[in-house]
């Protein structure tokens, strides 16, 4: 098994707004969050938006959902495959946590829940091992799209310089 991030005592957070976020609001929030120092990794979570109708007589027709759009975060284009319901992230320490809370208060116009807990696996699971094999980058542990394929590169490295 590969190394874990558990020894680092990073703080994991969840932002859970009372409404599902429009792509523009999600983009603004993610931009502000990624501007902060000390964010290690994050993912967005929410109901998936299909490209084509999955069931019924209209199966296969394109959906063209307005939520299924490309947002730009930290200079990188990201295609939103979900309607953003929550954002889960790992940050360096509690100081960053408070900065993230402040950003949420400024950007979100709806009430939100903000909590600390365990949201991203800190240790390699069987699924991680099956997907990435032995010796995988510990930063990638738990960073998977359950319906995505690894060859589609579901994880974006927003600030490659910080990886050093």
């Amino acid at each position: 098994m590969s190394d874990t991030l558990s020894d680092a005592n990073y703080v994991q957070l969840e932002i859970f707004p009372s409404r599902l976020l429009k792509p523009e609001t999600a983009q603004n929030l993610l931009r502000e969050i990624t501007d902060l120092e000390g964010i290690i990794r994050l993912f967005v979570h929410g109901p998936r938006l299909p490209q084509t109708v999955p069931y019924g007589p209209a199966t296969g027709l394109p959906v063209n959902h307005p939520g299924n759009t490309v947002i730009e975060v930290a200079g990188q284009a990201i295609e939103l495959a979900v309607y953003v319901g929550s954002i889960r992230m790992e940050v360096v320490d509690v100081d960053v946590k408070e900065q993230v809370r402040e950003v949420c208060e400024n950007v979100l116009s709806v009430p939100f829940e903000f909590r600390e807990g365990n949201f991203i696996p800190r240790r390699q699971t069987v699924s991680d091992y099956a997907k990435r094999g032995p010796g995988a980058d510990p930063m990638m542990i738990g960073m998977t799209d359950p319906k995505g394929k690894l060859k589609d590169q579901p994880v974006c490295i927003l600030k490659p310089d910080d990886m050093e």
């Binding site: 707004p17 938006l49 299909p50 939520g67 309607y83």
Partner: peptide, 15 residues
């Protein structure tokens, strides 16, 4: 059973 989107129109993945 999902939270409402910001505009208050119940989420519909087929729009």
């Amino acid at each position: 059973s999902l939270r409402l989107p910001e505009d208050g129109v119940m989420f519909d993945m087929l729009d």
